[in-house]
Design a protein around this nucleic acid. Structure first.
Lengths: 228, 228
DNA sequence: TTCCTTTGTGACATAATGTTTAAAGGATTG
DNA sequence: CAATCCTTTAAACATTATGTCACAAAGGAA
């Protein structure tokens, strides 16, 4: 877990882009630092130890590739994930950015949503390594094992498809509590929801089928809840 | 929590787009207001105090940028989130927009799902900040659990239909206090609903049936009250 | 008491909501 | 790259909740 706001270092020689990214990340609760070229980036990175670096590939003085290589060479910066910004997506493969140690890349023009979600994904990945969440729910004849991604019901071990598993385990994370379809969409499908809420009903049906209509109950006009 | 439907102000000079958005938002349960240019938007916003504003950037008379700047200047409107619609995800528009105080932007053509999910995300963010409601009322042999949406009476757990549950829990939120039918309609049904007030009587009767005529009492000529 | 207003009741229509099935399109896997 | 399994949508179907009515009952005021 971070102390205070997570720090991000944004590196680009174009002032406009720098500003856009800075602004939107700041609003999302990051502490944003900036650099205009690779050399500055390396220098900054050593000093402020950001949790993550977002860097343009094409820059004067020292390009992103070279900066990334250098960062991976210093012990104090080598574990900081780097996201590359490239003009087009094809470019990246040719330039072999992964060999330079990049963790991800995003092609321009940058959409804030995309950037943010990648960013959060990477940070989350790091966090979960050191933040073990409750990995197993036990309701007697029903056990939900988040680590192994399986459901045990009446002694039998069932392999649920991903969405069904996540839906069930979300509802089960707070037994009794009624969740509206909107809440479910936001938590199981994610922020950028592009799914009709009827979809939930279908998944619920499938889960019920497997669990003999137990555990998931409808509260008409409100939503669904889990109860054992 | 809102009384009635959340209000949205949609601003666009193109009649078609206005209509499309209005229609789909109305269907999702928003009270939709419209304006055709920035000047109207500012005027409307002050008057109706919408929970959120969706505004085209390019408009005659006063463009979205300028309107947004003005809105952020007035104390009564400065906290209303603004979502911009841009013709393309032009970086310039995006940058300038954020500086003008926009909270988000969406590039045309607008997909209803995207619009809706952003909208809800923003509203939810605001709501959860200011909604620390009590989730459980306890009156001895009667407990009302708003989180689970159930009523426990004499040890038995009862599933109330939504309106009945909300009516009971509204009355129970201030035991002893008499509420007129108008007050009840406003709080349980919402401002804009047109329902005959005798409807309340019918619901009261159903609740009494389930609770053995206890808890809800008539104050003739005035209204109803809850007492344990 | 008698009249008049307000509230309670049961039945009913229909609006709202949830369930189920089928099928198309995507993603994944061998 | 074919086969399979997921995910999502749409549409038909089923169910329940909600609102309205007509009339009965209760309560007050003259």
């Amino acid at each position: 877990m971070f102390k205070g706001l997570p720090k991000v270092l944004v590196v680009d020689d174009e002032q406009d882009i720098l500003e856009i990214i800075r602004h939107s990340l700041a609003k999302e609760g990051f502490e944003v630092h900036i650099a205009a070229n690779g050399a500055q980036a390396v220098e900054q990175a050593k000093k402020i130890k950001p949790e993550i670096i977002i860097m343009d590939v094409m820059m004067p003085v020292m390009d992103g590739m070279e900066a990334c290589r250098q960062l991976k060479g210093f012990p104090e910066t080598q574990n900081i994930p780097v996201i590359f910004l490239t003009a087009r997506s094809e470019e990246f493969a040719e330039l072999a950015g992964f060999e330079a140690g990049a963790d991800d890349y995003i092609s321009k023009p940058v959409r804030n949503r995309v950037l943010l979600s990648r960013l959060k994904a990477i940070l989350r990945r790091r966090n979960t390594l050191s933040t073990p969440e409750p990995e197993k729910y036990d309701f007697g004849n029903l056990k939900i094992d988040r680590e192994r991604y399986v459901v045990e019901y009446d002694g039998k071990t069932l392999q649920f498809p991903r969405k069904e598993f996540e839906l069930l385990s979300f509802l089960a994370s707070r037994p009794g509590r009624v969740f509206s379809r909107d809440e479910i969409l936001e938590n199981v499908w994610g922020n950028e929801v592009l799914v009709v809420d009827r979809t939930i009903d279908v998944h619920v049906r499938k889960i019920r089928e497997k669990l003999d209509d137990k555990f998931i109950y409808t509260v008409k006009g409100v939503g669904y809840k889990f109860e054992s």
